[in-house]
């Protein structure tokens, strides 16, 4: 692949006091691919997301999006460029109904600029557009689910709402911070095709996951983090076969179990 990478993370380091949450992490993300990031708890996965999307400042290193430096910019500017994220702990607007939750991103400058008539503007009513988007993500239009208060929605729908908020912005990259965690097996099973469809629509995805089997099904490449450092990067098979990963992440007995399932 000779095209320049969509997102370049160059030697990103983040220190909280004397503790390095991220140490010299670099990777490239190419257009249209799904990159999976795995690692044990506390290995710096969410910190990496926060660094890329500008929610926290880097200690060293830089992040480039389409060749332009985005590290150091405020979070809303980075989201405005099309690098969006979901939150691991869902952050809906609890006091608003689900479909009104989407009116807010649809009101954002990026949605107005890129959305055409779907952006709301004079022609499209944002309420209608938001119900369209929610339907794509599995909120049945005819049911009352889209009209329910976000505080009454179950986790599965809240995770979808997180994705919907990103989609409303017509993003180029969505960084999914554990969208499968906390979901039942059947809910995950219905989310997997969704991720595949997003990829087909040309959205580049970074997925941080603990659900390895589902991740390995959708991801093109996997990166492994441990103690804030990048252990390795490769296809699912390469990662599974790697001795370092086995030791650091799976623990030696568990890996057989995972392999059997996969």
């Amino acid at each position: 692949m000779n095209a320049p990478p969509l997102l370049q993370v160059n030697q990103v380091t983040k220190a909280f006091g004397g503790i390095f949450a991220l140490n010299d992490v670099s990777f490239d993300l190419h257009e249209g691919e799904i990159l999976g990031i795995i690692g044990p708890n506390g290995s710096g996965k969410t910190t990496l997301v926060n660094c890329i999307t500008g929610f926290i400042d880097l200690t060293a290193g830089e992040v480039l999006f389409r060749g332009r430096v985005i590290s150091g910019k405020p979070a809303h500017k980075i989201a405005d460029m099309g690098v969006t994220r979901t939150f691991q702990i869902m952050r809906p607007y609890f006091s608003l109904p689900a479909y009104k939750n989407l009116v807010i991103p649809l009101f954002a400058p990026r949605a107005k600029r890129t959305g055409g008539w779907r952006g709301g503007g004079k022609l499209g009513d944002r309420n209608t557009v938001s119900i369209d988007i929610l339907e794509e993500l599995g909120f049945e239009r005819e049911s009352f689910v889209p009209y329910k208060m976000a505080s009454n929605l179950p986790t599965g729908y809240l995770k979808r709402l997180e994705l919907a908020r990103c989609l409303a912005l017509n993003p180029e990259i969505i960084i999914c911070d554990e969208v499968f965690s906390g979901l039942s097996m059947s809910e995950i099973a219905s989310m997997v095709p969704l991720m595949e469809r997003l990829q087909m629509e040309g959205i580049t995805l970074i997925m941080i996951e603990h659900r390895l089997r589902e991740l390995f099904r959708v991801a093109n490449r996997i990166m492994v983090l441990n103690f804030g450092e990048k252990l390795m990067e490769g296809t699912a098979e390469e990662v599974m076969a790697d001795e370092k990963v086995k030791e650091a992440y799976f623990g030696s007995e568990e890996v057989e179990e995972v392999m059997e399932h996969a």
């Binding site: 999307t53 929610f55 405020p74 979070a75 809303h76 500017k77 989201a79 405005d80 969006t84 994220r85 939150f87 952050r91 809906p92 607007y93 609890f94 006091s95 608003l96 009104k100 939750n101 009116v103 807010i104 991103p105 649809l106 009101f107 954002a108 400058p109 990026r110 949605a111 709301g120 944002r126 908020r165 990103c166 409303a168 912005l169």
Partner: peptide, 24 residues
């Protein structure tokens, strides 16, 4: 109105508003 919804969103969850590409 939609603008008022953004105000209420800022009260509810300002991080999500930032993640939506809007300056709080």
């Amino acid at each position: 109105q939609d603008l008022g919804l953004v105000f209420r969103a800022v009260k509810d969850n300002d991080q999500a508003v930032r993640a939506s590409g809007m300056s709080i």
